[in-house]
């Protein structure tokens, strides 16, 4: 991984440039697999210099909402697929599976990220937070409370993603301006059009978090 990529990871999350470079690296791995010996049995995805055939299962260690999971996954499986269909945490939703709607937004080390565009193997041992992780036991967290009180949804299917986008925004900016809220939510589509209430919820959530 290049120096740039590392910087991207640690400062700003994945910029578009960083993401494209990452894809480049991924393609190299698949290409290389054609000439390498196939692996027998699971390997650790984060070990260097291991080359995997696409369909072989690997052991992936994930840290989700503070809990550790170890799953067998194909290297091509998205974090979203592993969350929803393998681990069974279905709060995170699938709207497009191609990075366009934000229904799958989770936090990776506090930064909002599309789980459908994130491979499970890519986020080993990173801090993954999903909408379930914002609960305090059975109680709603501040962003969730604000969404409920402001009627910031209709069908609710974009909602976990919107909640995570707002949570990510507020982890970075304590008191966002109206414009910051709008752009913080702009990676998340809501076909029901509940945006105005989502903005109001984000605003209230900022206050709730401080109190």
């Amino acid at each position: 991984m290049s120096k740039d990529d590392q910087d991207n990871r640690h400062c700003e999350g994945y910029t578009r440039r960083g993401f494209i470079q990452f894809i480049g690296v991924g393609a190299g791995v698949v290409g290389a697999s054609l000439i390498s010996q196939p692996f027998n049995g699971p390997v650790l995805a984060n070990e260097d210099d291991q080359v995997l055939p696409a369909a072989s299962m690997v052991k992936v260690r994930l840290k989700i909402n503070g809990n550790r999971y170890e799953v067998l996954a194909e290297p091509r499986w998205s974090l979203l697929y592993v969350l929803r269909e393998i681990i069974g945490q279905t709060g995170t939703k699938l709207g497009c599976d191609r990075g366009e709607c934000g229904a799958c937004t989770v936090l990776i080390d506090d930064l909002p990220r599309y789980a459908c565009l994130t491979l499970a193997v890519e986020v080993e041992n990173r801090e993954i937070t999903t909408v379930e992780g914002l609960m305090n036991g059975e109680e709603l967290g501040p962003v969730q409370t604000a969404f409920a009180e402001n009627d910031a949804f209709q069908c609710g299917y974009c909602t976990p993603g919107q909640v995570m986008a707002v949570e990510g925004l507020l982890r970075k900016v304590e008191s966002p301006s109206a414009d910051e809220i709008r752009s913080g939510c702009s990676g998340n589509l809501c076909r029901c059009g509940a945006y105005q209430n989502i903005f109001a919820a984000a605003d209230q959530a900022a206050r709730l978090k401080k109190s």
Partner: peptide
């Protein structure tokens, strides 16, 4: 009145057909 199912919808516990396992 806030919605009677607001809790389910914002907590991620509402089970949509695509969530069925």
């Amino acid at each position: 009145l806030p919605r009677v199912d607001a809790y389910e919808r914002v907590s991620g516990t509402a089970v949509y057909p695509s969530d069925i396992l």
